[in-house]
Simulated scan of single mutants.
Amino acid sequence: MGDLRIAVTADRVEVILDRPEARNAISRGMAAELHAVCADLETDPRILIIAGSTDVFASGADIAELRDRTADDALAGINSRVFDRIAKLPMPVIAAIDGWALGGGAELAYAADIRIAGEGLKIGNPETGLGIIAAAGATWRLPAIVGPALAAELLLTGRTLDAAEALAAGLVSRVVPSPELLAAAHEIADRIARNDPLATRLTKAVLAAPRAAHPAIDDQTQALLFSSPEKHRRMTEFLNRKKTP
């Protein structure tokens, strides 16, 4: 049995991190399984929902493995490569995070486009206390999400945020009761799935573009969509609905 539970439908893939004996710590094997999920979604783009089993998202990287990793392992970017691949997936990624989301678990959440939290969330990066840095995306993704001042405090002190603090900081977009978390993630996916997939994919791409690429990339992308039959169909449908008494 693998470290992920995967459910696939026509418009989305649900991935549950499932190493309860290790509090869903991210192992080399789990990273390999996440690469396989990415390979599938790069070929057949769908929304991705990532959550943790039980009441923990991911307690971090697997410390038992991490202790014995070498400089060569660090240069291989075992976690950073797969998290970057997740961030670059064509369709949106939703992280439903609850309980502990620490270290590599937090960095996996930072790679998502949308993060929602259960009320029990505790998220942070305690890596410096273990003699390492948060090297799987936190040093550059977290400042972009919460701002450089708070990111520096969190990364340098190892302080964790609870759900209310994460919401106030903009690290998550909503907090829901823990039993409702996965359903809330699917509600967000439902809203995304009702929209035009091409427009959704291109919106994600434009959001990720550097500031210097704007506004040219917006105009070029809009020109492509203005030529899309789906744009004409959806706008015609909208106008017909307005005419209906």
Rank of each mutant, 00 (worst) to 15 (best):
G103C: 15
D44I: 04
T160S: 13
D62I: 01
V172E: 14
V82R: 05
G131E: 11
I50N: 05
A212W: 07
A164D: 13
A168L: 03
E230C: 02
G131R: 11
G137Q: 11
T160I: 09
Y110K: 06
M1G: 12
T221S: 06
L130S: 08
G103R: 04
G124Q: 05
L66M: 08
P215N: 05
P148V: 03
H35M: 05
I145T: 13
A138G: 01
L4Y: 03
R5G: 00
T203G: 00
L224P: 03
A96H: 01
E180Y: 07
D196I: 07
E165M: 06
A39W: 02
P215L: 02
L225W: 10
G147R: 12
L167I: 11
K204M: 07
V15I: 10
I50F: 00
D84N: 15
D219G: 02
A205P: 01
D218P: 00
V56P: 09
L142M: 15
A169R: 08
I192N: 03
I114E: 00
I6N: 10
R85H: 08
D113N: 08
A71C: 02
L239E: 14
D73S: 07
I47Y: 02
E165L: 03
I133Y: 08
A136F: 09
M1W: 04
R141W: 14
P92L: 09
V13W: 04
M235Y: 13
V146Q: 00
G52W: 14
G77K: 08
R194Q: 10
A208L: 15
T244R: 07
V93G: 12
L102F: 15
A212Y: 03
I123C: 06
S27L: 04
P90L: 11
P126I: 14
F226Q: 09
D98A: 12
L130Y: 12
A185W: 08
L161C: 07
R81G: 05
A193W: 13
A10Q: 14
V15H: 02
A193I: 13
T160D: 06
R233A: 15
A166W: 08
A151F: 01
P143S: 07
T70D: 12
T54S: 12
S59Q: 12
A95G: 05
A163S: 08
T128C: 11
P210W: 03
V13D: 10
G118E: 06
M91N: 01
R194P: 01
M235I: 10
G129A: 14
P210C: 07
Q222H: 02
D40I: 00
D190H: 14
A169P: 09
T160G: 04
L167Q: 13
E237Y: 03
Q220W: 04
P90N: 02
I94L: 11
S27F: 06
L207N: 15
A183T: 15
L41I: 09
L34G: 06
V82Y: 01
V8D: 11
K204E: 03
L34K: 04
S173V: 15
P229W: 10
G170N: 04
L198I: 15
R234C: 11
G120T: 15
E187W: 05
E237P: 00
I123F: 02
S27V: 03
L41C: 02
V13Q: 08
R28L: 04
